[in-house]
Amino acid sequence: MDNKYLDNIINELKNYDGPEIRLMEVCGTHTAAISENGIPSLLSDKIKLISGPGCPVCVTVTAVIDRLIELSLMENTCVLTFGDLIRVKGTKGSLADAKGDGARVKMVYSPMDSIKLAKENPLMNYVFAAIGFETTTPVYALLIEEAKKLGLKNLKILTSLKTMPEVIRWVVKNGSNIDGFIAPGHVAAVTGGKIFEELSKELQIPFVVSGFEGEQLILTIYALVKMAGKGGYKNLYKSVVSEAGNLQAKEMVEKYFETSDSFWRGIGKIKGSGMTLRPEFMEFDAGSIGLDEDHEPAGCRCASVLVGAISPHECPLFGKKCTPDNAHGACMVSTEGSCYNYFISGR
């Protein structure tokens, strides 16, 4: 490493001896990047990194998983999904478990892959497990637009779409004592950095928009440490994030989706924190409304981990009954979950 600026910054962070600072990231990809770069090992013990509810797989309630399994077992129905949703358990097991009972589940790279499948197999009904935050919702909007244009009758989505601002407010209001937020870089690419600047003013807590490289994250953490207690906002991912964001994407989302209340695994209902298809496009919905129920396995403390109230280590199941191979809660199943990352990287 011949970057002396970076060396100096890391040195400062390693030797920080002020009051404890708690910084939260709210993006599963940031959680993974922090582990992959070994960032906790570069910080003083007084700088705590807390993983927040930024993993879409982790915050999806069990009712949604149960409904997906139900759909996948129906005749002539196939559920299409991103990879890590396949192993998350609902009340009666996961989509992976259901495959053993004859469920039709297919892993795809992009929601747009559904179009080709639906066109080529008109007798099969496809349901895309539409989870995600603001980064992914525009892709689903494009999907509906294309499906409508082609007049596809055998393609629907089951939504568990969530948005950032309300859950961030919830975390702050419910006392996790966060001194600074690492703002999600790719959400911000779509929404624009402005919403995080506004949140920083409203909550009087600093927000810094960050990229995903180790060096970028270190600079972000440094900025937040300096800004702690003083508030403020910085965009340190300008190559991708503008203050206004991607207007075309936002318009597309606005066209097909509306803000709604949403149920977060482990948290419960947060008003206005999600998105559902507008009533005029309900023909593309596979029964997303009313999927509220959430059943945490006995002893599981994902709820508290997800909002940074406790660290994974403080959950009695962590590392003992609950491991990646035998995951009880969503935080351990997803490779972007806090518990999973803490477990495999020895944090």
């Binding site: 906790p40 570069l42 991103f82 990879g83 495999i344 990287s345």
Partner: peptide, 22 residues
């Protein structure tokens, strides 16, 4: 020892190594 000098523990692989997207 990562590019930026951090230390990351690489545990055994869990699960099937499915692609993440979200």
């Amino acid at each position: 020892t990562t590019k930026i000098g951090g230390k990351r523990v690489v545990g055994p692989m869990y699960g099937e190594g499915l692609p993440r997207i979200c």
